Simulated scan of single mutants.
Amino acid sequence: MSRLAIIAGRGALPAALVAALPQAPVICALDGFAPEGLAVDLVFRVERLALFLRKLEDLGVTEVIFAGAVQRPRLDPALFDPQTAQMVPRLMAAMASGDDATLREVIAIFEDFGFAVVGVETIARDLLPSAAVLAGQITAQDEADAARAASIVAALGAVDVGQGAVVAQGLCLGVETLGGTDAMLAVVAGLPQALRPKGGLFYKTAKTAQDRRIDLPTLGPATVDAVAAAGLSGLCFQAGSVICLDLPEMQARAVQHGLLLWAR
């Protein structure tokens, strides 16, 4: 019988996955990145990755899913075990090529140890909404801004930069970079009114060539609030490619703020 481990990071996604599973998984967390609302079974460090993977084997784990936010940890060379030290060159080479390359290499290492790496859409498909207008109504300007934003994000994804953009009346007000969604929306909120058209959409999607088993975009009720605080008229995301945490609450807040919420 297969046993699942969640490599959990910060945020509400790990707990949402646990709630969707028929039996309890093994909860693992990178040191310093504990998930919200979950007891952690195993804490590990990158410098001891090989030892951690052997521990998963001992626990009978056969499948692994990555969920939640982490940042690149600061590594302590004195802590490396011999087998993990042999992985360092491949990890460092991947890190130099960007986030997507790093995540693909992490997946490859887990697979080298015999684990099947699965994605959110495999075990909790309901967290990725299908195409629908979830709140508000779409205007012709929304259609145009969404198409423009989608083309911008596709270009960003091709060079492994980000998964989101803000467009208002055809003008790009912001793109997602290393700081993520919150930082981008804060920049948009701070733009002088004289420089920005009225309204606008925040658009989010997975990168075109990314491995969908890891780092799918995630939105939640706080995102809706941030879109409203940025003075935008709506939030649009690619249907089937974006995780929505507590979708009913997202819809309720979109209605409260008078925003469009659209799975495109």
Rank of each mutant, 00 (worst) to 15 (best):
G164Y: 02
V120Y: 03
S97V: 09
R104G: 13
V166L: 03
G136A: 02
E143Q: 07
A149K: 08
A149R: 07
R148A: 15
G164S: 10
T122V: 14
R148P: 14
S97Q: 14
L173I: 07
G164L: 01
G157P: 11
I123N: 01
F115G: 03
A93C: 10
A158Q: 09
A147R: 08
G162L: 08
E111M: 14
V166H: 00
L128H: 03
G136F: 06
Q163E: 02
Q169D: 09
T139Y: 04
T102W: 07
G164T: 00
M92T: 12
L178D: 14
M95E: 15
I138G: 03
A131Q: 08
R90W: 04
A168M: 05
A158D: 11
L173M: 03
A144P: 01
V118Y: 06
T102A: 14
D112V: 03
L103R: 10
I152V: 15
C172N: 04
E111C: 13
D112T: 06
V120A: 02
E143I: 10
S97D: 08
I138H: 03
A183F: 14
A116Y: 05
A186M: 15
M92P: 12
M92N: 12
S97M: 11
A94M: 11
G119Q: 05
E111W: 06
V187M: 15
E176F: 08
P129R: 02
M184C: 13
Q137T: 04
R125L: 12
A135S: 05
G136T: 00
